[in-house]
Design a protein around this nucleic acid. Structure first.
Lengths: 312, 312
DNA sequence: ATATTTTTATAACCTAAATTTATAAACATG
DNA sequence: CATGTTTATAAATTTAGGTTATAAAAATAT
């Protein structure tokens, strides 16, 4: 069994056609036929059902393809390791970003980064913290941007910036009259929260110092996006908290509803996180440099009180 | 880059010696020299520092080895998928067993297992829990039988049985007169223990609720086998604890020294443990079935109090 | 149906790569 | 400095991967 054979299997599985797959692999069709037959002989199992047109995978074939993809992808990482050693900044890079950071941060740094490092092919995916941690561990993500600290010994963190929370309080709310808010003013009962699974939700709950168990039944009003939260709040359904960067591009009229915290404001720590193996570290550092440089101009709070993003 | 080349790299990295590594791979030494050189040329990087004696990995080399191990292990899974599909239970299987389980459990299930699954080539090794965990993680063991729970997120456990502790109290001992022993009766000071590194030792220490640090100086009398422990105890050097299965085949005369615990008796949890990747799962399940079936007739305690095998 | 095109398998051949044997060079050790 | 050990190199051999040519099978068009 060779990596090449597995690669051929992937190509045929994808194109469902030996001839087209051969072209994609830059070899002739008999090469694929023979190599795949050889692999099937060695394993003594049919990977493809050639009676079906177009060709289909057998049941075992599907499992083999999944594993073959794994192996082929992992083999690419050997070259990545060498690139890193040589300080070569390029190649594919898979970055995860949590939903409450994505829409505000990405537009700020993406253009600058791809201009500065044109050889890097960024693939960005929006994922929850939980998904991000799993994918960093299994190697499907090279790095991610998330709220920290995560206290996971397999994952390293480099702080990019601290982002204070800002109160968004609609006019009918009892706290609206108060200019500056103290964290002790907050009551979890009339706070709009993101749906379960978002670490920003957990951060807010931690800020209110309520155990997660206690609030579950009291709250059904939950949303997946901060934009929706603002709209629900405008409808008088309660106050909410916004990450600072989100307050920069809300409508003029809605800005009247922003109430800042007393110093030091509660804040979330936003970091670039990656596997402790430090694969593709040169690209991670390039991202860190670009983002930190840009954020330095946008956020200028001195002292903040960091809130944990972890549940409970 | 081929899987074979990566496998050669792993062998040299492990043995720190081309000649020995070549033997383990069943090829000649020049094969390794040339293939590894070729890989180094293609990647344009040194994997090994040949100036050091014995040979060492370079910094990149270490990272490459980690990834190579990944790839080679994942490649084994292809054959595993085929075996599972065919319901084939066979091939080499490396099983580790801790010393305090080996002599009693192995004779009970080995004959039945090899009769039931003649195509499996079992390679059994006696190892401490610590060694077992390391070897399951680096792929040198397929599974092991040990006291659990281990609380290691890379290792999965399936409980085989609960084995109560039984007091072995020589005639001169102050507790000899007591028919049934309570765990609060135990005093670590006159208890004979296995030498350091055995999880059964740690289990007993946990049962006596003493911190490990406190007893180190008080005790030099330590043995590596339970047989020796019994003999030392007969000499009047103190009482000891035996795992239940060990009490089944001691001499008639010595059985008088056995004193059972009050219900529920303290017990160790014995499990078959394996890597979370679940390679060769069909053989693991075959082992589990055989052992559980046999033990069901030998141990019939209802309620037990499980003692942790972990130190401290 | 039959011819034509498309697709996969097989055969013969070629080339490149993996491996072996033999040997040289480098290194450590007594 | 001689000796044993270890790694590298060279030449020869075997094996594996690849190509071209072609046959067989299947799908499509006539």
């Amino acid at each position: 069994m060779t990596i090449t054979q597995l690669y051929y299997v992937l190509a045929v599985a994808e194109h469902q056609n030996f001839t087209k797959a051969a072209e994609k692999c830059f070899v002739t069709q008999p090469t694929l036929s023979m190599q795949i037959q050889k692999l099937e002989d060695q394993l003594d199992v049919q990977i493809f059902d050639r009676s079906k047109k177009p060709i289909e995978l057998t049941e075992v074939g599907k499992k083999i393809v999944t594993q073959a993809r794994n192996i082929v992808n992992e083999s690419y990482r050997i070259q990545d390791i060498v690139d890193q050693q040589k300080g070569f900044i390029g190649g594919e890079f898979k970055l995860g970003i949590i939903p409450t950071i994505m829409p505000t941060l990405l537009p700020m740094f993406l253009k600058t980064f791809i201009k500065r490092h044109p050889k890097v092919k960024l693939k960005i995916e929006e994922l929850t913290t939980e998904e991000i941690i799993a994918r960093i561990k299994d190697g499907h993500l090279d790095a991610a941007i998330a709220a920290t600290p995560l206290e996971d010994e397999n994952i390293k963190e480099r702080v990019l910036y601290f982002e204070p929370f800002v109160n968004y309080i609609p006019k009918n709310h009892k706290l609206y009259g108060k200019e500056k808010i103290d964290s002790t003013d907050l009551e979890i009962e009339d706070m709009l929260l993101l749906e379960d699974g978002h670490c920003f939700r957990d951060g807010v709950i931690n800020l209110c110092k309520v155990f997660k168990d206690h609030i579950d039944d009291k709250f059904q009003l939950e949303s997946g996006s901060i934009e929706t939260l603002i709209k629900l709040s405008n409808e008088g359904l309660g106050m909410t908290l916004l990450p600072y960067l989100h307050t920069l591009d809300i409508h003029e009229k809605e800005k009247e509803n922003l109430h800042y915290f007393n110093d030091p404001p509660p804040a979330r720590e936003v970091s670039i996180i990656y596997h402790k193996s430090e694969l593709k570290m040169q690209i991670i550092e390039a991202l860190q440099d670009t983002i930190s440089g840009i954020i330095r101009g946008a956020i200028a709070f001195q002292d903040v009180k960091i809130i944990s993003p972890l549940p409970k």
